[in-house]
């Protein structure tokens, strides 16, 4: 074994403490700029996760466990739920939190497994576009939904929920 640097084998000169400024800044965790974002993302996953447990468990309970379960789900069922602003708000918050939680999780997985820069950028681009489209679409659907649909002669359709007959007459 040959050594060109005598200091490397002469600890008598004293060994500097680790992280004493000799480390290339690119290897340092602090000051990289994305630190606060990653911290916020980490915290968001835990807070949104807690909220989603309540939001999704109640969603599954009312839609699949109560009443006739899976067989009750049709246009009238959705219309009946969204006639109540509480369920509109419930589904809106659930949509946003679930999509942001899921998108951040997928981002983490892409960062872990896609090693080539181009692959990573491309996959994350597809992910972010898909998420933006789904969040926008879902939000518009909740806010522009019209439960009491009528045919061309002004008669209520058969599939509308019962309360439409009281409202429209």
């Amino acid at each position: 074994m040959t050594t060109k640097n005598p200091e490397a084998v002469l600890p008598a000169h004293g060994i500097e403490a680790p992280r004493s400024g000799r480390i290339d800044p690119k290897y340092l965790r602090s000051g990289s700029g994305s630190g606060s974002f990653e911290m916020a993302a980490w915290l968001f996953m835990r807070i949104s996760g807690l909220a989603l447990i309540v939001l999704i468990f109640v969603h599954l309970w009312t839609n699949l466990m109560m009443g006739d379960g899976i067989h009750q789900i049709d246009f009238g069922f959705v219309a009946g739920k969204w006639a109540n602003p509480v369920w509109q708000f419930w589904d809106l918050v659930m949509l946003w939190l679930a999509m942001l939680h899921g998108t951040n999780g997928m981002r983490t997985i892409i960062d872990d497994y896609a090693e080539k820069d181009r692959t990573r950028v491309a996959l994350k681009g597809i992910l972010f576009v898909a998420s933006a489209v789904i969040i926008t679409l879902g939000t518009l659907v909740i806010f522009t939904f019209e439960p009491c649909l009528m045919d061309s002669s002004g008669e209520l359709l058969d599939s509308v929920p019962a309360f439409c007959h009281d409202v429209v007459g």
């Binding site: 789904i134 679409l137 522009t144």
Partner: peptide, 12 residues
């Protein structure tokens, strides 16, 4: 989300 969005297409 896509299948639920069909409520804006038609009940059928």
């Amino acid at each position: 989300v896509l299948d639920t969005s069909l409520v804006r297409v038609s009940p059928e």
